[in-house]
Design a binder for these strands. Structure first.
Length: 240
DNA sequence: AAGCAAGACAACCGCCCCGGC
DNA sequence: AGCCGGGGCGGTTGTCTTGCT
């Protein structure tokens, strides 16, 4: 009988985030179910995927939706329904989970109120965005700046180069939005921490990182995957 | 200051789709 | 054609934060 390895649930901690970021940055996304084991994470593949897609991957904008984004979501929800991934595809840098949460917590009520109001009087409901108008300035990004010469790093470097998110000359992100800053403080990963992590693969507890590297490469080779420098990930070519 | 309610959001669960065999 | 595994999606839940009394 094969014993099912213990799989942790619940909130991710900083250490787990670091491991996932470092692993994906180094080896790319090749198999979500196998990846946690090689990355030294006691998480399910699904959990890792969710964490990466909704939270850790580069170029995600968080918090404070602009008025245009709100209107777009409302419009698309009317036309597409609750197809959050389709809606997210039309809102760059937003995740479907974020949009879904935002809709459920705010927009749905607002739309209901407005539709009720429009039936009686056409007074406009005050947008929450008007109170948080500087959406770009107050956006929250996971702050990582890494050497753009390192495979998988140029997205991070692009974020770092964006002065909207980072103070000029700083390698480390500083979240502008206090609300998110407090909530996310535990998750901020500094340049130096990531870099030292990458330089010291033996930090992955109890795992032979050389073997991991070889196994990953063997897997890539076996599954005919190739590194795509454009997208910074391993890809499976279509063989027709 | 403490307790409670509501809001916000991260994460999980279950289902479905698709491709490979 | 049917089965299986991986990945994606939407709904829901759990937990933390905030605001009010």
């Amino acid at each position: 009988m094969v014993r099912q390895p213990y799989l942790k649930k619940g909130s991710w901690n900083r250490d787990e985030d670091q491991k996932l970021i470092a692993y994906i940055t180094r080896y790319g996304i090749w198999n979500w179910n196998e990846m946690p084991r090689f990355a030294g994470l006691q998480r399910s593949g699904k959990s890792c995927r969710l964490r990466w897609v909704n939270y850790l991957r580069p170029n995600i904008r968080r918090g404070n939706f602009s008025r245009e984004e709100e209107e777009t979501i409302i419009h698309l929800q009317k036309t597409l329904g609750n197809r959050w991934s389709a809606i997210a595809a039309r809102l760059p840098q937003r995740t479907d989970n974020d949009i879904k949460n935002y809709w459920n917590s705010r927009l749905k009520k607002r739309v209901i109120v407005e539709s009720n109001n429009s039936a009686s009087s056409p007074t406009e409901t005050k947008s929450s965005v008007e109170e948080n108008s500087s959406d770009a300035d107050s956006s929250m990004m996971l702050g990582i700046f890494l050497d753009s010469d390192t495979p998988g790093m140029h997205d991070f470097a692009e974020i770092a180069a964006d002065t909207t998110f980072f103070p000029s000359g700083s390698n480390l992100s500083v979240p502008v939005d206090d609300h998110y800053s407090m909530a996310m403080d535990n998750y901020l990963v500094s340049y130096w921490e990531i870099l030292s992590f990458l330089e010291q693969p033996q930090m992955i507890e109890g795992l032979d990182c050389e073997a991991i590297s070889q196994n990953s490469q063997q897997w890539h080779s076996h599954h005919q995957q190739y590194y795509d420098p454009l997208h910074d990930f391993w890809v499976s070519p279509l063989i027709l």
